[in-house]
Design a protein around this nucleic acid. Structure first.
Length: 499
RNA sequence: GGUCGGGUGGCCGAGCGGUUAGGCAGAGGUCUGCAAAACCUUGUACGGCGGUUCGAAUCCGCUCCCGACCUCCA
C-alpha cells in the first residue's frame, strides 16, 4: 500500500497517515443541518471528503465513512438569550411538522449529493435517531464531573474541563484565558450557565417547543455538538482515524465535540482532523446567513447575477478539484468558464485514449515520461490529497494522448504495456478517484442512436468532401455546429463531440 | 480588539530554498479545400521594504492590503 500523508489540523503539520487498525479507516465528517436547501459551500466540503473517501478506498483501505444529518438541537443564537432550534423555527414558519422539514431538506440534500456524484457514506445517522445515545453520553459526562444540571437543562463545565485536561482550544488555536474572559460582558445575560464558555448538552423545552424527548433531567432536546460525539462513538468507537468538516466548524463545534468525548471517556475522538476550506464568491465567504451565495440550482441554470450561463455539475466538481481542499476557492464566472474548457479537454483526451492501440514492445523515452507522470499523479494524491497537482499531471498526459492520437507522436514508440497502464490510470483517476462522470449516463439506447446518426452524417459529409462539394460539406458542419456538435477532421477520419 | 490563514503572470490555481506546475485567455506556427479541433513554440509572475543564504515566490523581521474564526454556518 502506498504511504499517505495528511495535514492534521490538530498539529498543523503534515503527518504520515497510520490508521489505528492496519488496513481499516474510520472517518467521520460533520454533515448538514437540514433546515434549508444545501448551498454550494456544503457541496465543496462534501466533494472534498468524497475524493478523500474514494482515494482511501483506492489505496486499499476498508473505510467506514460516517456522515451525519443533524435534524435537531441546532440553536440559533444562545439558548439563554432566546435561542431557538433551527428545525423548529423553520417548521413554525412553514407550518410544517418538524419531521416534514427534516424529510424535505434531507431528500434535497441527498439528491444534490447524487447530482455532484458524491458517493453515499457508509452510514448516514440522524441526530433524532440517537437521542438515547446522547442522553447516555450526558450521563457519563455528568458522572465524570464535567457537566451540571440546572432547571432541567444540562451544561458542560468548560472551565473545569480546561483546568483538568490540557485539551480545550488546541484544535482551533484559542487562547484559553481569552475564551474565559472575552465573553465576560455577556455574563449578565446568562442566567443558568455558570460560565459563558459553558455550552448546553441538554435543553429543557418550553411549552411551545415542538421537538421534545424525555430525559432524566427534563422533557427537552439535546444540544448541538452532542450528536456528533454520540454518533461517532457509536459507529466508529471512542477513538477513530479521521474527523472532517468545514474549517468554520473548528470553533466552537469541533472544540466542544472533543471536550464532550474526553468528558465522557477521557480519550480524544480522532487521530487526524481534516478541515476543508471555504468556497468564496466575489472574494467573500459563501454563507446562507448573509445572502452572499449562489445556490447549486442557480449555478446549473445560470439564473444568477453572478453568472453569464449555466454550468454542468461535473464542470463545477472539476472546478473544485482544481484547488486544494485546504485552500479557499474563489468562485467567479471567468473561473468557471475556464474550468468548463479544461474539463472538456480532459474528457476528450480520455475518449481519444480509448481509440489508441499499439503492439509495440520496446520501452522508449516516451514510455518513461508517461510512467513518470502517472506515478507523479499518485504521489500528489498521497501528499494530502493534492487534486490540483494531480490534475496537472493528467493534463500533461492529455497532451501526450492527443499527440499520439493525431500522429505527432508515434504509437510505435509506446509499448503496449505502458499504453495499458495509461488507460488504466486515466480511467481510475477520472472516474474512481475524482468521481468525474463523463456525462450523467443518459439512456443507453439513445446514445447508440445518436452515434449511429452521427456516423451516417459524417459519412455523407465525407462523400461530399471527396466530390469537392464544399457547400454541402460546410452546410453539414455549420448546422451541426449550431446544434453544439463539434466536427473534428483528423488525419485518419472525422470524429465529433458535443461542445 | 484577539487568534489564524492568505496576497503568485490578463483570469483561476499548484508550488513553500536551486527544476516548465497545470487550466483558461493571448501571440506565432504546423495541419486543413477553408475552418475548427489537435499539436508545437511563446509570455519569464510571485504585495512593498530590508535581512539570512552561493542561491528565496519559498526562511526571518518590518510594513501594506485581504479573508476567516471569535455568534448560526461546510
Amino acid at each position: 500500500m502506498r504511504k499517505l500523508y495528511v495535514h492534521n489540523s490538530l498539529s498543523r503539520q503534515r503527518e504520515a497517515f497510520d490508521p489505528i487498525t492496519e488496513g481499516y479507516v474510520g472517518m467521520y465528517v460533520c454533515g448538514p443541518t437540514v433546515y434549508s436547501d444545501v448551498h454550494l459551500g456544503n457541496c465543496r466540503t462534501f466533494t472534498s471528503f468524497d475524493v478523500i473517501f474514494r482515494f482511501l478506498k483506492h489505496l486499499g483501505y476498508k473505510v467506514r465513512y460516517v456522515r451525519n444529518i443533524t435534524d435537531v438541537g441546532h440553536l440559533e443564537g444562545d439558548v439563554d438569550v432566546g435561542g431557538e432550534d433551527k428545525i423548529a423555527k423553520k417548521a413554525r414558519l412553514e407550518q410544517l411538522e418538524p419531521m416534514e422539514v427534516v424529510q424535505k431538506y434531507s431528500n434535497g440534500f441527498q439528491q444534490m449529493m447524487e447530482t455532484f456524484n458524491i458517493l453515499p457514506p457508509s452510514i448516514e445517522p440522524r441526530a433524532t435517531g440517537h437521542i438515547l445515545e446522547q442522553i447516555d453520553m450526558i450521563k457519563k459526562i455528568i458522572a465524570n464531573g464535567f457537566a451540571y444540571e440546572i432547571n432541567g437543562s444540562v451544561y458542560f463545565d468548560t472551565p473545569k474541563f480546561i483546568a483538568e485536561e490540557d485539551a480545550y482550544g488546541k484544535l482551533s488555536g484559542r487562547v484559553v484565558d481569552d475564551l474565559l474572559q472575552e465573553t465576560r460582558d455577556n455574563l449578565k445575560r446568562q442566567d443558568e450557565k455558570r460560565d459563558p464558555s459553558d455550552f448546553a448538552l441538554w435543553i429543557k423545552a418550553d411549552a411551545t417547543h415542538l421537538m421534545r424527548w424525555e430525559s432524566p433531567w427534563s422533557t427537552g432536546f439535546p444540544g448541538w455538538h452532542l450528536e456528533c460525539s454520540a454518533m461517532s462513538t457509536k459507529y466508529l468507537g471512542p477513538h477513530f482515524d479521521i474527523h472532517g468538516g468545514g474549517t468554520d466548524l473548528k470553533f466552537p463545534h469541533h472544540e466542544n465535540e472533543i471536550a464532550q468525548n474526553m468528558g465522557a471517556c477521557k480519550c480524544t475522538p480522532a487521530k487526524y482532523w481534516l478541515h476543508a476550506n471555504m468556497l468564496l464568491l466575489n472574494g467573500k465567504k459563501m454563507s446562507k446567513s448573509d445572502g452572499n451565495s449562489v445556490m447549486p440550482q442557480q449555478l446549473f441554470s445560470g439564473e444568477s447575477e453572478h453568472l453569464s450561463k449555466g454550468f454542468a455539475p461535473m464542470v463545477v466538481r472539476f472546478f473544485m478539484l482544481q484547488a486544494h481542499y485546504r485552500s479557499t476557492l474563489d468562485l467567479t464566472n471567468d473561473a468557471l468558464l475556464a474550468a468548463e474548457k479544461g474539463y472538456q479537454r480532459l474528457m476528450e483526451a480520455y475518449k481519444s485514449l480509448q481509440r489508441l492501440d499499439t503492439k509495440a514492445e520496446a520501452t522508449t523515452e516516451l514510455d518513461q515520461e508517461i510512467s513518470t507522470l502517472i506515478e507523479g499523479a499518485y504521489q500528489d494524491m498521497c501528499d494530502d490529497f493534492n487534486t490540483a497537482k494531480a490534475l496537472g499531471k493528467l493534463f500533461e498526459l492529455a497532451t501526450k494522448i492527443n499527440a499520439l492520437h493525431n500522429g505527432q507522436l508515434k504509437l510505435e514508440d509506446l509499448s503496449s504495456k505502458t499504453l495499458a497502464a495509461l488507460k488504466e490510470a486515466y480511467h481510475t483517476f477520472l472516474f474512481d478517484i475524482f468521481g468525474l462522470e463523463s456525462s450523467v449516463a443518459s439512456a443507453k439506447g439513445e446514445e447508440e442512436l445518436i452515434d449511429g446518426l452521427m456516423n451516417l452524417i459524417i459519412d455523407l459529409r465525407k462523400g461530399a468532401r471527396e466530390n469537392k462539394d464544399w457547400g454541402m460539406a460546410d452546410k453539414i458542419r455549420d448546422t451541426l455546429s449550431a446544434l453544439a456538435v463539434q466536427v473534428k477532421d483528423g488525419k485518419d477520419g472525422t470524429t465529433w463531440s458535443k461542445k
